[in-house]
Design a protein around this nucleic acid. Structure first.
Lengths: 200, 200
DNA sequence: TACAAACAACCAATCGCTTGGTAGCCTGAG
DNA sequence: CTCAGGCTACCAAGCGATTGGTTGTTTGTA
């Protein structure tokens, strides 16, 4: 059905972006390996062969979708940090809030990041995925180093635990629920913060 | 179709378990969709068709491997709780330690649990995966409810954050490292515990 | 005309799964 | 002891469908 939904709008919007967005949505919901290029093409309304005019391979689709997802989260977090104050815990809370709002938001790109374990890929793809994430994690490395943590707490383990709690939320979060991503982020940060600042 | 075929045991090495273990190892390292029946059969040293004497389908392989993984973690945690004392935080620490020791240990079954997002599956398979995990999470529901948490902290969000931090460890843990799963679990629990017990 | 963007047809390879057949072992009747 | 018969565990071959990807041609628009 819908032989041509066509028309009027091939306008401003880039068809290549449409393909990338459809790919990201399918990767996020079904996983990379379970998504075929015909699935992606059908979602956009083109044939599988036409897809290769825009992208050289399925791997390129994944890498670019993943990169865009990381870029979106990075942009959101850096924007939140620019608007935040100077207290370290306040900055951390702002970053985690922005992180979760994008991760649990409607963008299909950010949803590609967490479910695709880099360990499921080999060689170049795996290396590229890890490299794309590394720059983003540096933001949190800096944020953690500014916190007044007790000497008994390893900053690295603290960072990994916090990011783990945040990145695990897509497993149980349901968009229709009563809790907003921002309130969830606040609750998670509180669980880690109260240890030094009991007067919340 | 299948009466209790289990009764007659060939005491020698159970070939069916070999297949299941190979399947679990491949599911854990490459993901379910990226693992083919022929991959599994080749790992065991049989042909792909022979595999269907032991298992009816690839889905059955996943479901049984997942169930065995959940059973292993459940057994380890319940054993640790039986040997632990009565203080709520001590019991929680013991459970988390056992949880991580199995999750990061050598068993391929437990490693199937975390990387396979149930959201990547449909219908019966998804429902079964969720059901298998539910019983295990009840243990942590009970443990959290016994903790003297401040009223501002949601027990549900606390539990999900703690499990998120734990279940995220396979993403970054490397077996050769200097930290043991037990010490990692202790560090994670400490990050959540210090809030009420600063004199640790 | 010129070019971007798509179609249509196809490829070799691989997918999950089915089938018919058969060694090797164990059992129990003769 | 023999040996038919059943059972376990597998092999060999192949099914239709689908995979990622390629190629030559056609379309819409400027």
């Amino acid at each position: 059905m819908a032989p041509k939904a066509k028309a009027a709008l091939s306008d401003r919007s880039n068809r290549r972006d449409d393909v990338l967005e459809a790919a990201a949505a399918l990767f996020a919901s079904k996983g990379y390996a379970a998504t075929s290029i015909r699935d992606i093409a059908q979602q956009v309304g083109i044939l599988s062969g036409s897809l290769y005019y825009h992208f050289a391979s399925k791997e390129e689709l994944l890498l670019e979708a993943h990169a865009r997802g990381v870029a979106q989260v990075t942009e959101a977090v850096e924007g939140a940090l620019a608007a935040a104050g100077t207290p370290p815990w306040e900055r951390m809370a702002a970053a985690c809030c922005a992180h979760l709002e994008v991760l649990l938001g409607p963008s299909p790109f950010s949803q590609v990041i967490t479910p695709q374990f880099p360990s499921h890929f080999d060689g170049d793809v795996r290396a590229t995925l890890l490299q794309q994430r590394e720059g983003y994690e540096d933001i949190f490395r800096t944020l953690v180093s500014a916190l007044p943590l007790p000497a008994t707490v390893s900053p690295r383990l603290f960072r990994l635990s916090l990011l783990g709690a945040l990145n695990w939320t897509p497993t149980w979060y349901q968009p229709g629920g009563s809790e907003s991503p921002a309130s969830i982020a606040g609750g998670i940060v509180d669980a880690f913060r109260l240890q030094l600042d009991p007067g919340a």
